[in-house]
Design a protein around this nucleic acid. Structure first.
Lengths: 200, 200, 200, 200
DNA sequence: GATGAATGAGCCTTCATTCAT
DNA sequence: AATGAATGAAGGCTCATTCAT
């Protein structure tokens, strides 16, 4: 009862998260000031501290929210239709979308920050664990009954490889403006992870 | 000739670079203070500004130095011996080395910083271009005469894929402590990039 | 309306202006530190930046305030009584008051600063324009109906001469401690500006 | 013998004075760094301290040199020809020369600085005393035998008034760009100081 | 719940000055 | 006589955070 956050408070938190994400994307985590976030969120700086412990707490909440978004996107992949095709479409989109460099930069900055901030690290770890778990389910779904022929480590490894690919796309996207030549190469690799049983 | 830095100055610059890299790794770019860097480098804060324009200039120099290290490592790959094996060994090393999380974090932070710092971005872009070029040469070397059968875009795409893989390893390595299951999966993907001619 | 500063903020600004003027007089513009000003004003250094853009902004505000003081003093001259007598009294006061050397020094320093600071220069120019305008009105008032016999340039020139005299008193007052012998000389010159119609 | 400055040292000092004056004019006394002065003078920063005590010592030397220039100019006035005409020409020149605002600004800054720097104040006072003395001689020369009819205070007052006028021109010249209307007004005032015997 | 005035530590950077060579 | 590497104190300014209202 004491700490039960009211609906109103929840909505206010969302406002802050929205505003903070925008500011962090625009200026980076350190350069974005609480004052700017407050202004963007349409509330006073002081009040933010009624909703969040501190600035770190905000970035942690953003990471959690982003994690949910990723999980939701993964859930969509489970719908009807060819999984490989849908994932390739997603990667192609990632390769083309250069408008999202600032979003990518924020993700990288969060990772860097997490390596020195235990609380944030916990959130990132948990987030990664959840995503990885869902990725494994996806792979098993994609392989169908043949999945049983593969040892769990293989499934886990493939999920990790998907993680490497998506994280790599994010990082390389910040490193260079044009990655078009990469698109055709994704297909065989993704297929190898999602649709193939191999002795290899 | 006019601004040719003396040997002494060069050595001092190296001291600062060493110290700054350590501080940046330990605390992050923003949290590391010039005072701390100066102390670590064994000189006064003021003198750093005789050697570098400003803090940004230091991180840029670090990126350039790191780039040279990468190029040197690539050059080693060109030596005698099976390229695929050597690169797999390198990735396996990357997968295992958890002591280097802070080094990885610094790299990610640099990328984030570059998305908002034009000068740093230029260094990062140039660095990536150099590495990608060398990666393409490596791939052609690995394929041998068969390389002629592949269109340039294919070579370029494969080099990009290597970039995605290494960058992805770096990022995912910060996201989770254990990536052991990934090791066996690297082989087929790397082989696909380095040793195979395929219609698809 | 949007940025209408509250009464409280206005009062705080006045505090800072008062304190800064004192510090600037005591130490000079460059030597006076924001920390000292803050302490003198009884607030934290940080808070000053909620009230003023930066240090330059403070000196500009002081100049504007001083300008208003001058205009107010000029307005007093318009009251009943012999203008020439009142102005001579004012100059005599200026000649004798050696306690105000530091105030005079600040004015000179402001002028020097303005020659390299565009924003401050604008304030100084505007200030001078206002004062000169009022001085012309004063001269016309003093001459009465005879003023119509003089071309506008003559009026403007006389106003400028008054400016030269007061500025000259300020500067020379810093240059030497004793200017008593000057007092009797002011009368004929001032009369020439305020009370005489001449072919030359 | 011990401190007898060699000719070479004297020449070096002149170099520094030249360079410093230029830098001070360009940037102001405080903003001009010793490094910049050294570079402009074509010598090392360290060596300047073999020639001058410190930065204040340089500005003091500049003031002394400028004083000599003024005295030299006054000496020229003593040559053949109508003194009033020559002085009016000088003031007209001062009124028109807007290229010299930075020179004027430096003079004002020096005065401001002198009010807080005893050593500089001494130089400024002495300089003013010398100039004033020469101005009195000039006035007596201009009046010729009639000068004997005037009490010394009157002569002193007139010399002071000349000082007020020239200092005022300097200050007002920084305050406003256009002082053309002032030119015709200088004649009667100057004549009053230089050529007239009055009961008034 | 909400404000925004206020704090104060700490940051990057500059620069007069020194001194070993 | 001359250099320029080196110092270190100090400065202006920012910003996460607090708290009286």
């Amino acid at each position: 009862m004491s700490t039960a956050p009211s609906d109103r408070a929840q909505a206010r938190r969302q406002q802050v998260l929205e505003a903070a994400a925008e500011c962090f994307r625009r200026r980076g985590f350190h350069a974005a000031s609480m004052a700017e976030i407050a202004k963007t969120a349409g509330m006073s700086p002081g009040h933010i501290y009624n909703l969040f412990e501190n600035k770190d707490d905000i970035i942690a909440a953003i990471v959690e929210r982003d994690c949910e978004d990723v999980l939701a996107r993964i859930a969509e992949f489970r719908q009807e239709g060819d999984l490989l095709q849908k994932m390739l479409a997603a990667t192609e989109q990632a390769i083309d979308k250069h408008s999202e460099v600032s979003q990518a930069a924020l993700q990288l900055e969060v990772l860097a920050e997490a390596s020195r901030n235990a609380k944030l690290a916990a959130v990132v770890y948990r987030s990664e664990a959840l995503v990885n778990e869902k990725a494994q389910e996806l792979i098993q779904l994609s392989l169908g009954p043949r999945a049983d022929a593969l040892p769990p480590e293989e499934i886990q490894g493939r999920a990790l490889m998907l993680g490497v690919l998506f994280n790599g796309l994010t990082a390389l996207g910040v490193r260079r403006p044009n990655m078009a030549a990469l698109t055709p190469l994704m297909a065989p690799v993704m297929r190898r992870m999602l649709n193939v049983i191999l002795a290899d």
